[in-house]
Design a protein around this nucleic acid. Structure first.
Length: 544
DNA sequence: GTAGGGTTAG
């Protein structure tokens, strides 16, 4: 423990978020009458419920009382929740100040809370400062807090580095560590590591915990191994809503719409009530399996289940309509929504215009997007590609010019491959990664040998004949084809490789081909994360 | 004290 706890007060201070608080806090006058910590907790809960939990004067007063009454570590948690909820960095700092005053700041229960609080307020630096104060040897929970934070901020690689560090120190991971690390694996598509963790979980006897199993299902689902996800799900003794939901999403991700839906029906039969996210999974499943009418029915049935549709549900319905080619209907749907449409909704439609070659509507949609958000590089790319594909060269040039004028930042598309426990990431237009070059070259060669034409995501369904199958396959290929080949090996050659490996015969043979090439299991998936690529070294090289 | 699920995207 440090003898000068004040040095723990972080600098520089984050500017306090200028959320103008309401002039009156109905619960504030009650605070002084709370004579027990329990009463304080209740009042705090009420404040959070009313949305005024982070009202600065309220938080300050709460903290003062906590101090007076000998703040137990748990009370800092109330403050943390309140501060995090409002991203109130300043009030969080006050909570920290209270902790320092009461000598609780270095308490083994308090440090993780502080780490988490700063992380949730976006102050990574202070979170790290707190972490560095954790003495070695008794810091599993603090590690957990850091790992969780990294995962939540989409930095799975960092989470894995911390996990390794923990192990090197001989710290025993808990179920919390393992669920977080599994989430990191899911984000990275790191199946081999995920399996290793699964083995560890079995040996540690943690494989009956619902949360752990849910994380496993999610990891397997996102890493391309649906069978393993099903195995875990079926092996569970009890399943809660979340477990059912992840399994539904896993099916959906693999384009098993029917299975996703029968699971949903089964879930309801067993008396588990779906929530908003379960419905998202169901809608997602429908839109990615071409089940338009079913999707619309489920959308309509949401209110009967007492759930109000949110933007994301609208997004799924837009996708459902647009992907199936009902572009005008999708346009009307967005236009007539009870809420103000977001750029994402229009973007969903724009992307479908792209795959359906609908320039005219695409133009209208593109304009709607620009009204809302003209900083998103992807919109310009999709629209200008659409123009190029339909021969609208003038329009294409205009868009490209516009893009330059606006100085839009292009975030490159990113794909990743796991080879021998190592996740490699590749970025659009960057062919410097040694594995990437070799792989793309070889894959292209092999594809040519079997008569596979690059850039053929549209070709898949053409040969199928049957209308329904054709539509269904188009979903697979459009959704699942990843722009692995954005690494152009020769001018004009774009290769697309399929993400989820067992959706259709074409995809399957692709996967087989790729794994034959390397004689080992390979996972391909797309990630849209931003990483730096310096001196020819991919930052993912350190992950595992 | 720390933990699991969610729309679009070249």
């Amino acid at each position: 423990m440090s003898s000068s706890p004040l040095t723990a007060t972080p600098t520089p201070l984050l500017p306090a978020k200028s959320k103008s608080p309401p002039s009156h806090h109905p619960l504030l006058p009650h605070l002084p009458h709370c004579t027990s910590l329990r009463a304080l907790a209740q009042l705090h809960a009420a404040a959070v419920k009313s949305g005024l939990g982070a009202y600065p004067a309220f938080v300050t007063r709460l903290l003062t009382l906590c101090t007076e009454q000998g703040a137990a570590p748990a009370h800092l948690a109330y403050a943390r929740q309140a501060c995090a909820a409002a991203q109130a960095g300043e009030e969080g700092r006050q909570a920290h100040g209270v902790a320092v005053k009461t000598g609780a700041a270095d308490h083994e229960y308090v440090l993780p809370t502080l780490i988490n609080m700063y992380a949730e307020c976006g102050d990574t630096q202070s979170a790290r400062a707190m972490f560095s104060r954790v003495p070695d040897g008794d810091c599993v929970v603090s590690y957990n807090a850091m790992i969780t934070t990294a995962v939540r901020s989409s930095r799975p690689g960092e989470a894995l580095v911390l996990f390794r560090e923990m192990q090197a120190k001989g710290l025993k991971p808990t179920s919390v560590t393992l669920t977080s690390v599994l989430s990191a694996c899911a984000l990275l598509g790191a199946l081999e590591l995920g399996r290793w963790i699964h083995e560890y979980i079995r040996k540690a006897g943690l494989d009956s915990l619902v949360k752990v199993n849910t994380a496993l299902i999610d990891m397997y689902g996102k890493c391309g191994s649906l069978e393993d996800a099903i195995d875990v799900f079926q092996g569970m003794e009890s399943r809660d809503r979340q477990a059912w939901s992840v399994m539904i999403v896993a099916y959906a991700n693999h384009s098993y719409g029917r299975e996703a839906i029968s699971l949903f029906e089964e879930m309801k039969k067993q008396g588990i009530k779906p929530d908003a996210i379960t419905f998202l999974g169901v809608l997602y499943a429908c839109s990615h399996s071409g089940m338009v009418s079913e999707g619309l029915q489920y959308f309509d049935s949401m209110r009967e289940s007492g759930i109000n549709p949110g933007v994301k549900h609208y997004g799924c319905v837009t996708d459902l309509l647009a992907r199936s080619g009902q572009l005008e209907k999708a346009y009307k749907f967005i236009d007539e929504l009870p809420i103000k449409p977001t750029a994402i909704l229009w973007r969903t439609l724009l992307s479908a215009c792209g795959s359906h070659g609908a320039v005219d509507l695409g133009k209208r949609v593109f304009e709607r997007i620009l009204e809302l958000d003209d900083t998103h590089g992807g919109d310009y790319v999709i629209y200008s590609n659409l123009c190029a594909n339909t021969g609208e060269w003038e329009e294409m040039n205009r868009v490209r010019k516009l893009m330059n004028e606006k100085g839009v930042v292009k975030v490159p598309g990113c794909s990743s491959i796991e080879i021998d426990n190592r996740v490699h990431e590749f970025f659009a237009g960057d062919g410097r990664h040694p594995h990437a070059r070799r792989m793309v070259d070889q894959v292209i060669e092999q594809l040519k040998l079997v008569g596979y034409v690059p850039n053929t995501s549209q070709v898949f369904h053409v040969e199928m004949g049957e209308e329904e199958k054709a539509t269904s396959l188009r979903y697979h290929s459009e959704k699942l084809a990843i722009s692995f080949g954005l690494l152009n090996t020769s001018p004009g050659t774009t290769l697309r490789v399929v993400k989820n490996l067992r959706v259709c015969p074409d995809c399957h043979s692709m996967a087989k081909l790729v794994s034959m090439l390397f004689n080992r299991r390979i996972i391909l998936r797309d990630l849209n994360r931003f990483h730096h690529f310096e001196d020819g070294v991919c930052s993912c090289g350190d992950y595992w």
